[in-house]
Amino acid sequence: MSATTTTSETTTPAAKPRRLRTPYFQVVASLAWKDLRAEARGRELVNAMLLFSVMAVLIFSFALELDRQAQEATVGGVLWVTIAFAGTLGLGRSLAAEKDKGSLDALLLAPVERSALFYGKMIGNFLFTLAVGFLLVFLLTVLFNVNLFRPVLWLIIVLGCLGFATTGTLVSSMSVHARAREMLLPILLLPVILPIIISATRASTALLTELKTEDWLPWLQLLGMVDFVFLLAGFFLFDFIVEE
């Protein structure tokens, strides 16, 4: 006990100038920027995610050859199932690559707030998932013959991907340390993101089947609330995941 208090006393004076050097948002932005640039060069992550979602949608449209009305009712489900699985694929790669190259440890050594690292990683994952989401808007409009170009649906996609990326970053930073991490990630992630997936799917489906506003608005509100809770949870919990 006494050892920890003395170390904290010695580090507090040093903490002030270091926070001046790297402001919180600069850390977040530069980390997200780093991920985007690395992706722009290698493109292995986004390419895999996009290719996977194209294949998944093709399989869905083949397997669910439906009449127009049924297509309207299923397209929301297809959208979110594909985003969830493609996103999981990306997340598994994203942090595993950091860990295997040792860059995760290097990041943790840097004198910055841990939660800033979290938000930086989260934004990278968020943008990749969002790319999948918007590709799917085009793809599903063509293949399912349902018009997905609606501002409210885009809002749902943004909120859904945000929640997915937040939870996903948090959970995948735990699962990288596990023995069978590729297997464990979806098992850990899916139950935690189900509230997001369900509310996003319900909201999308209600919107696309031309239901009244009060049929999709509660789901949208729930989605926003869950996003907020997980963003907050990431702020507090990421510290404990990466410590040591």
């Binding site: 939870t167 948090l170 959970v171 735990m174 340390h177 850990l188 139950p191 935690v192 189900l194 509230p195 869950v226 809770v229 997980f230 949870a233 919990l237 404990f240 995941i241 410590e243």
Partner: peptide, 14 residues
């Protein structure tokens, strides 16, 4: 122990 504690907090959202 640490991850289990974190995950039990996350799971409580359900």
């Amino acid at each position: 122990r640490r991850f289990a504690a974190v995950y039990s907090i996350l799971a409580f959202s359900s």
